Amino acid sequence: MRGFARGLAASLSIAAGYFPVALSFGVTAIEAGLSPALVMLISVAVYAGASQFLMASLLASGAGFAASVPTVLLMNARHIFYGPAVARHLAPPPSPVASPLLAFGLTDEVFATAMARIDRTPQECRAGWLFGLSCGAYAAWLAGTACGVLLVGEADSWPSWLREAMQFVLPALFFALLLEAGLRRWSAALAGAAVGTVATLPWLAAHHALLAGIVAGATAHAAWHLPRRAGDAP
């Protein structure tokens, strides 16, 4: 498939972040009492980062699939918007067989990388490039989970600095993707998110302040760019 190898190469930065996070998930889920087969099944079928940690906690607490699955689906509702945003860059549209595969691979990091780099890829290679990008990230996630399942007994002997460093891998990955997308392009969103988060942090819990920052960043980005687009219209 044209562009697949280039997409696979582009996935290396994502894979470097996914592997240790998935490894951590494998260790955490096994220690929570889930079977190795179920842990691997979650990574194969759910493939949703933080939602997998939540699902493992819910299942370990006895919540069952009936309660866990809707919770995870609700947590990942934002992914509904990823497909249409990427699809407008693909021409001709992917086939009915390829579309679900490409949609399944659109994690936050894959989506961010695709939106930052897909326009630099020749039009006829974009679907293959996106598929390669998704496959590389997915393979790293599954490999990390498998290693976590196998190495669960060794986790307690890891140096403390290594365990603490693994907690910073995913934020570091997001920061690297932001740098790749270009800080200047997203300066209004970054400023709005920073101000919104810092301003609400004294009164709200950290996760609520983060949501406020996201809303403020999106609002600032729209307010900065919409007038310019209106001015460019004929």
Rank of each mutant, 00 (worst) to 15 (best):
A67F: 04
S43H: 00
E31A: 15
P70L: 09
L58R: 13
L38G: 06
G49N: 08
V46F: 04
M55V: 12
P36S: 03
S57Q: 15
Y47G: 00
L59T: 04
A37S: 03
A37I: 06
F53S: 08
A50L: 09
A56W: 01
V39G: 11
S35Q: 05
A56N: 11
S43K: 01
A45F: 14
A37M: 15
I42L: 09
M75R: 03
L41S: 11
G62M: 03
V69P: 04
G64N: 04
F65N: 07
P70F: 08
A60V: 09
L74D: 00
S51Y: 07
S57T: 14
M55D: 09
L34E: 08
E31M: 04
A32D: 08
V46Q: 04
V39M: 05
G49L: 02
A32L: 14
S43N: 12
G64T: 02
S61V: 11
L74R: 01
G62R: 02
S43E: 02
S61P: 01
L41A: 15
A48K: 01
V69S: 09
S57I: 11
L54S: 14
Q52E: 15
A56L: 10
L34T: 03
A67G: 02
A37K: 08
V44H: 00
F53P: 10
A63K: 06
V69H: 01
T71M: 13
A66W: 14
A63G: 14
A66H: 13
S68D: 09
A48T: 04
S51M: 09
L58Q: 15
L58T: 06
T71A: 12
S51W: 07
L58C: 07
S51A: 15
N76D: 13
V44D: 00
V69F: 13
A32H: 11
M75D: 05
A67Q: 14
F65K: 04
M40T: 12
L38W: 13
I42G: 03
E31N: 14
S57Y: 06
L59D: 02
L38M: 09
V46K: 08
S35W: 01
L41C: 06
V44I: 13
V44W: 03
L58H: 06
T71E: 02
V72Y: 07
L54T: 14
G33R: 12
A32Q: 14
A48Y: 03
S68W: 06
V69I: 15
S61A: 15
A56I: 06
P36G: 06
A45M: 11
A50E: 12
L38A: 13
V69Q: 12
A56G: 14
F65A: 14
A63S: 12
S61R: 11
L54Y: 10
G33E: 08
M75W: 06
